[in-house]
Amino acid sequence: MRKTAMMAVAAIMFAPLMAQAGGPSKANSAKAIASAAARIKIAAGMNDQWLATLAAFKAANAAQAKGDFALAQSKAMTAATLANLSIQQASAQKKLWVNEVIK
């Protein structure tokens, strides 16, 4: 019961995002992969890449190669989300690390 309710809510919340990104097609999933790759590059430059980001990105490319564009798109979006979180973390730490220094 809880699960179904949550999936319904999640579906409603994700719907606009999926609509904006376009339905599953080779071109749309390739676009999602390219945009994830750009975020991943930024995260790497900040010395803060997450293992899960690269795992999702790898899965996206594998799905794309197999022609499963829906999966490729969702994995690429996961990779981009995780990369954005690590970029956000690294940016925040640029200011926050000094609070941890032994004085």
């Binding site: 010395n47 803060d48 997450w50 293992l51 899960a52 995780l82 979180l85 690590s86 973390q89 690294a90 730490q93 640029k94 926050l96 690390w97 000094v98 941890e100 220094v101």
Partner: peptide
Amino acid sequence: KEYFYSRRGQLNFSCAS
């Protein structure tokens, strides 16, 4: 020094943590 004290990774730990 900055590397040592900066949190990183999905688990959000620094070396110092």
